[in-house]
Design a protein around this nucleic acid. Sequence first.
DNA 1: CGCATTTGACCTGCGC
DNA 2: GCGCAGGTCAAATGCG
Length: 165
Amino acid sequence: MAESYPNTNMPGSTMDRYNYSANLEFSDFFDFTDWTKGDLALIVSGYPESQNYAANDVVNSRGSSSYHEDPNNIAASGDSRSVMGEKQITEKVAFKTKSEIEILDDGFKWRKYGKKMVKNSPNPRNYYKCSIEGCPVKKRIERDKEDPRYVVTTYEGIHNHSSQN
DNA sequence: CGCATTTGACCTGCGC
DNA sequence: GCGCAGGTCAAATGCG
Ligand SMILES: [Zn+2]
């Protein structure tokens, strides 16, 4: 717990936007190939266990095991709905990086599958998905509304393949 | 030729 | 019931 990150002790959910993110220095592209293949992959893989990972490069880290349950397993009549029971745990990790471009190559192959405009924001939202088959990992990239020089990258899911290239 | 990218349409969930 | 917002898919195109 050397890192200074009040994961659950957020004294003021209002600052949940970007308060502690002032000393972000992304001079160069860092070792994307490094933190991506080693740290990032490990983080996302074992996030629910160790949420106190380095945050020097990242500004915001959010992990939420959002389970999409179906509260209506009622087979009304003849309509055999899924059996549910298995919660859909989708690891969601959001990173706020200071970058002027959105094409931050994290080492994985992403295939853009949609672009949407965020209401309340003149910036579009890009939806990416892992090109690797069997990889339910999705990536969402959006520019900050008040800080266009910041980019929010949200990863959803876990890579089922160690190699990305 | 294969694949990534693009844009619009379409679907779903929620709110009112 | 309709509208809005968000998300996803699909066809076409361009590029490598
Ligand atoms: Zn993947």
